[in-house]
Nucleic acid binder design. Structure first.
Lengths: 353, 353
DNA sequence: GATTAGCACTCGCTGTCAATGAGTGCTAAC
DNA sequence: GTTAGCACTCATTGACAGCGAGTGCTAATC
């Protein structure tokens, strides 16, 4: 029989709740005693045996209680667990973090990420997005010194990057201004991916009276700015939270976890595979495509601005995770950030050419 | 007798070398056998007893070998240890990290920091400096959008920060340019600490025809930029290295270490107390003023540009640290970074008013 | 027919105890 | 002054028994 009757569900939920709480294999007596289901341990035992047979539970060794399998957790997340609400205090915490309105996007995100790890007690990750689909808005070149200029690039998402470049000859402020207008005119509205630096150098030389070397310097500055936009930063918070969990009592386990956290590639991959749009993605143990984290659960979400993904934020922890709480937190934060972003900058339209 | 004869020195050095290598309390036989001093274990035993009495060694318990005390390490660092050179490979590694010439100072530093932790196998820290003694060079305000401006601040150390501000009315490009000139003229050469935002608002209103609200927005932008300059970032690399050391085999120990690393305040304090100028500072165990790290050793150095401290970089690890190697690395890196900085930007003079 | 009491069995965990061995301090001989 | 020798200390290890939480199975009960 494929269907799982209500009593089995109740018992499975009780087992997983208990295991999430204590990290101890759950025995039939515990369930019979604590959760007033009104059944004897023997009955529970039989049910547990069934649940194990169907793959929702596992037994670490013959004479111990059961622990949930990945499949068990999945079923729990999809159908069993009780939804959780954030406490007013937690909501307050999030709002305060957002209120700080820190200039740079990255800082805002890492702030929020810290709150997430504080609320959930897990390790949280946050990533700024891959911006290569966004669109350039304006380029400015300013004189700084007798031998230095500042190149500034602004994208339609409000991201500003700059690069200080040195050049043998610095054009007059006036001609730099003309150059800036020309660059903004030419590049404004172009998708970052489509910007060709070599073409740019050509154009600078033909459309202005820049000498070759200076043009190259400026182009390098622009290219450097674009690189900065492309680079997606990853922020980690609450890494030492894992020491609170008994499953990391052993040093090799802890080391393995930290090695994962220190491998940016893995982190990025985790975040990249975040949900397409909107919702919250829960990946439990072996559901993770990345083999290094097949013993962990990862919950991620993305926040958007004008339908453009502006980044993602998530939580990593043991498969025995308080999914209800984590999901509630991320859901709230997702909406809050998206709203906040919208408020910070109401952008004009201007899609890619 | 206060003086320590050469034989005692030899033995002490052998003991500390061995303990640094193995983390095992060192017995008299080990020293007699391995390091061809040509003395019997009994003799060594007597010497060790003396050294303990004088506070250079300690005994974890009655019938075990000796381990160095903080005082022992201090003596070792000051007088005993053999100087070490970096291998060509390591030098190569450092040069490559520097060669990447990453735009922002912070990124360069964190790169180098990563190499340090890689070479030394300890956890490395790097900090950008407190810049409030540096001097403002230029302020620029650019129009960005129908309701947004970009405020850019450049210091004499070549640090560039920007802030995107929204204002109800955006002055014409022309008047913004005039405003920029006026701001640069007024603030250029002023030490960041001495900039008073309220005065600035007044001046903006009297010297230009800005309305109150816009002036405040711009002043906020400048203030935000200054905050960014003041904020000294801390970078950590190689945190998971500590799992390689037997002294962190116990989870509480490891947790304690990570808690320290996650407390920015402690880190900053550690780095701040770096050496006044030039050299390398070694703080062993209880020599650390900060009680949380009295079980660790911290080695730090600073790198300079035009006699101005541009930041510090350091290593934290068990008191049983390979001081020779760490010092060699930091020394090399200190010089290399300072040289690199000088090369990147040869600054004009322009001291504080 | 489902539920439950009872029982034999499994197996990880804990505590005890003796053996081991690395190390010391001390004394007497070299 | 140096060293061989010896008695002593003490952390570590492994073996072993007892405990207890838990299971599966069977037979009695509702």
């Amino acid at each position: 029989m494929m269907l799982i009757d209500d009593r089995k569900k109740l018992i499975l939920k009780a087992i997983i709740d208990s295991y999430i709480d204590t990290a101890e294999p759950v025995g039939s007596r515990t369930i019979a005693r604590k959760h007033g289901i009104g059944l004897s341990s023997a009955t529970i035992r039989n049910e547990m045996s069934d649940l194990e047979e169907r793959g929702f539970l596992e037994q670490p060794h013959t004479s111990s209680g059961r622990i949930p399998s990945d499949k068990g957790y999945r079923f729990y997340v999809d159908q069993l667990m009780s939804k959780k609400e954030l406490t007013p205090r937690e909501i307050q915490q999030i709002k305060e973090a957002l209120k700080m309105r820190i200039g740079e996007l990255g800082q805002l995100i890492s702030q929020v990420s810290a709150v997430v790890s504080d609320i959930t007690k897990y390790t949280s990750m946050a990533m700024t997005p891959q911006m290569n689909k966004s669109v350039l808005k304006s380029v400015q070149v300013l004189p700084v010194d007798f031998d230095k200029m500042l190149v500034i690039v602004i994208t339609n998402a409000g991201v500003v990057k700059n690069s200080l470049v040195r050049a043998p000859v610095i054009p007059s402020p006036d001609s730099l201004q003309k150059l800036s207008s020309m660059l903004s005119l030419n590049l404004g509205g172009v998708m970052l991916d489509n910007i060709n630096i070599d073409d740019l150098i050509q154009k600078m030389k033909t459309e202005t009276n820049l000498d070759n070397e200076t043009a190259i310097c400026i182009a390098n500055g622009i290219s450097d700015c674009l690189c900065q936009v492309f680079a997606s930063d990853v922020y980690l918070e609450g890494t030492s939270n894992i020491f609170n969990f008994p499953e990391f009592r052993s040093v090799p386990k802890a080391k393995q976890f930290f090695d994962i956290l220190n491998t940016k590639k893995i982190l990025c991959a985790m975040m990249r595979m975040s949900v397409e749009n909107g919702g919250i993605k829960v990946r439990i143990g072996t559901e993770n495509e990345i083999k290094e984290i097949k013993d962990y659960s990862v919950v991620t979400t993305t926040y958007v601005l004008n339908d453009q993904i502006m980044g993602s934020i998530g939580v990593i922890g043991p498969t025995r995770m308080e999914y209800a709480k984590v999901i509630a937190s991320l859901n709230y934060i997702r909406k809050a950030i998206s709203k906040e972003l919208m408020q910070i900058m109401e952008l004009g339209p201007g899609g890619p050419r």
